[in-house]
Amino acid sequence: MQLLNLDDVARYVEDNIGVFHQKRIDSLARLRLSNVLKRKNPYLFRAKNVQTAEQIVRGILEAHISSNEETLFGDWLEGLAIFINGKTYGGWKSGIAGVDLEFDKDGCRYIVAIKSGPNWGNSSQIGQMRTNFKTAQKTLRTSQSGLHVMAVNGCCYGRDRNPDKGDYLKLCGQRFWEFVSGDADLYVELIEPLSFKARERNDEFQASYSRMINKFTREFMDDFCNEEGAILWERIVQLTSAQD
């Protein structure tokens, strides 16, 4: 094991955090009002007495952004974890389906599926991860007889007080970052580098977001409001629910 140099982490963040922010902006640019609106529940908007086009537009955009950013940043943190593990334990990006990271430690091959937080999936998704782990273990043991393989579900934040899940370990937050780096304090030390140019990047995103609010509000008024500005709820329900 090599001790982690936090300057290396800071440089990685500075060189790569822009990718995350650019993907946020690109995701907004690709949105189409009708596509997003089709995925929303019009009955809920009506039950909440939503009365303006901008309220609906902000609601659907904020819901999309929240879900999308969690995914995008989870993917970015996965790359950071692999980078850090490569520096400390010589780990590498796995080519096995459902496995993100592989590395050797104390005579054991660790196969790691990295997720953003602890509540990342339902029972069927967790079942698929277990299947992926078993397939990977079988593949590795076949190619390298006698290899001890341990499966780990690593979560970049959060807690799980019972990490031993029987056929795999679930390591969250501090436990995960210490696991990939050997540094018990890394989970705290990461906070500062991640703020690199955060204000500038967020200002750029907010400008794109504001333009999208205006654009979608105008489109919504044209397509789903009458000449007096009243929302045509029937038309929205037909968009989301009518048979093709």
Rank of each mutant, 00 (worst) to 15 (best):
Y157Q: 07
P42V: 10
K93V: 13
G18L: 00
K38N: 00
G146P: 05
Y209C: 06
A47L: 08
L101P: 08
S181Y: 05
A136L: 00
S210T: 14
D244K: 14
C156A: 13
K138T: 06
N153A: 14
L239G: 03
D100T: 10
I17T: 00
T135Y: 05
I25C: 11
N153C: 15
S94C: 09
Q2C: 07
G121E: 06
A29I: 05
V36T: 06
L140H: 00
K170E: 15
K134F: 04
D203L: 03
R24G: 06
E70P: 02
K48V: 01
E200M: 04
S208E: 15
V180S: 12
R218T: 15
S34V: 10
N5M: 08
Q2P: 05
L190M: 08
D26W: 01
Y168F: 07
L28V: 03
L239R: 00
G166E: 04
I213T: 08
F83I: 13
E204G: 07
D244P: 03
A81S: 14
E219V: 14
H64F: 14
I17M: 01
S145Y: 11
D223F: 14
E69I: 08
N132V: 08
R161L: 09
V112F: 09
Q238G: 10
S124H: 01
N16K: 03
D100A: 11
Q55L: 08
S181P: 07
D185W: 01
H21F: 00
R130N: 13
R175P: 02
G154F: 09
E228P: 04
I56L: 06
A81C: 13
I56E: 09
I65K: 12
A47V: 10
R11P: 01
K115P: 07
R32W: 02
W120E: 09
I236D: 02
K134Q: 15
G98I: 13
G154C: 12
V13F: 00
F196M: 07
S34C: 03
N214M: 07
I236F: 03
G154T: 09
P118K: 05
E189D: 11
R175F: 05
L72T: 07
I84L: 05
V9R: 01
D160P: 03
D222I: 15
N49S: 15
Q2S: 09
M150V: 13
F20H: 12
E78L: 04
M221W: 02
S241Q: 01
R159Q: 11
C108V: 15
F205H: 14
G98D: 06
N214R: 08
V152N: 09
V152M: 02
T217C: 00
D203Q: 08
A63R: 00
A63N: 00
E102R: 07
A230R: 06
N85I: 12
G117Y: 10
W76M: 00
L61I: 08
G127N: 06
F216N: 13
I60R: 05
N49M: 13
L33S: 12
G98P: 11
R58Y: 12
Q174H: 13
A63M: 00
E204S: 02
E234W: 08
I114F: 10
K87A: 04
E54N: 15
F83N: 09
I60A: 11
G173L: 15
D75E: 09
A230F: 11
D167W: 01
G229T: 11
R235H: 12
F224E: 06
K170P: 07
F103C: 04
L190R: 07
K93R: 15
A113L: 04
L140V: 04
I84A: 05
W92Y: 15
F196C: 12
